[in-house]
Design a protein around this nucleic acid. Structure first.
Lengths: 122, 122
DNA sequence: AAAATTGATTGACAAACTTCGATATGTATA
DNA sequence: TATACATATCGAAGTTTGTCAATCAATTTT
């Protein structure tokens, strides 16, 4: 009996048998979440999502924050590089808008990472 | 005619009328996404989500990566502080597991930020 | 054509983050 | 009780990130 208890305690746990995400997937997801990991950028996204025409020019984005114009430009670039927004230059102004379908893609990513009822069945 | 074109060009766009997320919400979301903005931490989450018992001890997590033990411990702390995982000490070992329901909460957050069909109707 | 305006880029700096070795703490074993 | 083991914490080194002033490029206005 004591011997059996010993054996149980000599192993901490049974290792996983299911495959986990690979490094390429993890790196890609990291890029996305890093773009979302800033309060200013999240506010910019919310601003675009809630604007009447779903399109806001840089001047209005800049005037919504107490940050210098190059700082906003920097944040817009990060969101653009992450494929979350796009900019459309018309005349003197650049109008930014959300890229559609990204919300769904992100939610699928969250399910793959943290598990969801559907993924749990696989 | 020319005058009318001038008037149109003197304003860049119509400002938003809908409310956007406030700073407190943005800060909270930033904390969460910052915890997800690292490939190692995403791999750890995936490891927990895909483990047979949905529970893995630190030793097995550590041996899954080419990183020093204090580094893994640091990442586990960040995930714990973000409310994504919990640790259960049993004897010599600490077993980590995902906190249930967080995936759904994150997906709702994404919808609020980037807009979703339901939120668009509001 | 010159001046003004919008937005992007560059370079610098401080703050935050990832990583590690050394060490501390708690538990089990001899 | 002394030793070995598992994990957390601390402090330091190197890297990345957020911010701004200065500058540049493109467009419009005068």
């Amino acid at each position: 009996m004591i011997k059996e208890l010993k054996v149980i305690q000599e192993e901490c746990c049974t290792p996983s048998s299911k495959p986990t995400i690979d490094k390429a997937q993890a790196d890609k997801a990291q890029e996305l979440f890093a773009a979302l990991a800033d309060a200013t950028r999240l506010s910019i996204l919310s601003l675009l999502a809630n604007s009447l025409e779903h399109e806001v020019c840089v001047c209005d984005i800049t005037s919504s924050f107490s940050l210098a114009q190059p700082t906003i430009s920097h944040h817009l670039r990060i969101l653009r590089d992450a494929g979350l927004i796009k900019g459309d230059k018309r005349g003197k102004w650049v109008y930014y808008s959300l890229i559609k379908g990204r919300a769904e893609e992100i939610k699928i990513m969250v399910d793959q990472l943290l598990g969801s009822p559907e993924f749990a069945l696989l």
